[in-house]
Amino acid sequence: MHPVHYAKVLKGAVKRNLQVDLNYKFQLVTDVIDMLLIIVAFTVLGAFVDDAADPGELGIDYGLQGFLLMGVLFWALYQRAYEDTVAALPEEASRGTIGFLVTNNVSLSTLLLARNIASMVKTLLTTLFIVLPVLLVVDLAQGGMPGQRGLFAGFGLGDLPLIVGVFLLIWVFMLMVSLLVASLNIVSKRITPFANMVVTALKVLSGYYFPIEAMDGYLGTGVALWLKTHIPIITGLVFLRDMVLIPGPKPGFGVLWNTYLEPMLVGILVTGVVAGLLYKYLERKAQSWGTLEFY
C-alpha cells in the first residue's frame, strides 16, 4: 500500500476508534475512578511502609510511596492501550469487518496499530489531565515540592525531552508486546487470560507492586539487575524513577545511554523482530486455517 494511503487509512481507523470510545462514557468514567482508587490505595500503602521501614532494606534509593506512584503513572499510560489492542481483533471480528478490510488491502496489523494509537491518545489525555494533577495534589498535600522534595523531587523541565523520548520508546515496546500477544488471537480464541498473565508479569517485574531489588534473596543475586537491563519496560520505569524521584544533578548523556537507552533499544529491536515474524506467520496460517474471521 502506498505510504500516503496507509497513513490515511491509519488516521481514519484511529478516528473511528476514538469516535466509538467517546460513545462509551461509562467506561471512560470507570477507568478514571479505577485509576484514582489505585492512587489512593498506593499512596496509603506507600506512606505506611515508608513510616515503618527503611528504603534501603527494600533495595531502592527512594521512598516506597514515590516508587509505587511512579509505577502507577507509568502503567496508567500503557495498560489500557495494551488491553484494547489485544482485544481489537475479536472486537472487529464480532463486527464482521475483518473480512471486508482484508479484501481492501487493510492488514490486521493496521487495525491493531490504529487501536493502540487511539487508546494511547485516550490514556495520554487521562494521564495528563487527571492522573498527573492528582499526583501533584497528593504530593503537595504531603509537603512535597516539585524540583526540591517529595514525589517530583528530581524533576526539571530540562529533563522533559529525554523523559518523553523514553515514554515513546516504551510505547513502541508495548506496541510490539501487544502485537505479539494479539497475533495469537488470529489463530486462537479467548486469549484474554494469557494477555492478563503477560501484563501481570510485566507489572510485577517492573515493580508495580513491590521493588524486585528487595527480592535478591529469593530470585538469586543479579536477577533484578538482569531484568532491569534486558526488559525495556523495566529499564524505562527505573529510568523514570531515577530521573523524577532522586533530587540533584543528573548523570551525563553517555551514562544515560549506556545505562538505559541502549539496553532499551536492543530489547525493543529483539521484541519487534520476534513480534513481526510471529505476526506474519500466524496471519498466513489464519488465512490457510480459515480462522481470520472467527473468534
Binding site: H5, K8, A13, K15, R16, Q19, V20, S94, R95, F100
Partner: peptide, 26 residues
C-alpha cells in the same frame, strides 16, 4: 466482497461509518 457478516459500530452515525469506509476505499 460483501457478506451479511459485515456489521457496523452501532454507536457511530451513518455519516461517520461512510466516512470511515470511504477512507479505507480511497
Amino acid at each position: 466482497f460483501i457478506s451479511p457478516a459485515l456489521n457496523f459500530q452501532a454507536k457511530l452515525t451513518l455519516r461517520q461509518t461512510i466516512e470511515f469506509f470511504a477512507t479505507v476505499l480511497q
